Simulated scan of single mutants.
Amino acid sequence: GDEPKHTGVSLDAPNDRSPGFKALYSCAKRNGLLYLQFHGAELKHNGIDWGDDKTISIIDDGENVKIDLNGNTVKVFCHHTQFPIGIAYNN
């Protein structure tokens, strides 16, 4: 219940039934270094709307799935950059 919420997705329907995605970025600290991190979800269009629940699921590092409002199984993810973008602290 504490996932970030957003306004509805206003993307047009795809011409070729291809999925879309939405993402939220943040910084993650690991071993004293900062990494850019992305939490996101796949979006599937059913001909009427994207089935978006207006939340960004926050999961641990990796990928998982959830059911959207149209009953589609969609991928949710948390990926971070391979290389650090800075130092979190300096002892």
Rank of each mutant, 00 (worst) to 15 (best):
D2A: 14
D2E: 11
E3D: 09
P4K: 00
P4T: 04
K5T: 14
K5S: 15
H6G: 06
H6M: 08
S10V: 10
S10N: 09
L11Q: 06
D12P: 07
D12S: 15
D12C: 11
P14G: 08
N15E: 13
R17W: 09
P19A: 06
P19G: 04
G20S: 12
G20F: 04
F21K: 12
K22Y: 08
L24M: 14
L24C: 12
Y25C: 13
Y25R: 13
C27L: 12
C27A: 14
A28M: 08
A28Y: 02
A28D: 05
K29M: 11
R30M: 07
L33P: 04
L33N: 10
L34M: 12
L34K: 08
Y35D: 00
F38T: 07
F38Y: 03
H39K: 07
H39V: 08
G40I: 04
G40D: 07
A41G: 10
A41F: 00
E42F: 02
L43I: 04
H45S: 05
I48K: 11
D52K: 04
D53G: 14
K54M: 15
T55K: 12
I56Y: 09
S57Y: 12
I58N: 11
I59D: 04
D60K: 11
D61F: 10
D61S: 14
V65F: 08
D68Q: 01
L69D: 15
N70G: 07
N72G: 09
N72E: 10
V74N: 03
V74H: 02
K75S: 14
K75C: 12
V76M: 01
F77R: 06
F77S: 07
H79F: 13
H79N: 11
H80R: 14
T81Q: 07
Q82G: 15
P84K: 04
I85R: 01
G86K: 02
I87F: 01
A88V: 01
N90R: 09
N91M: 13
N91W: 06
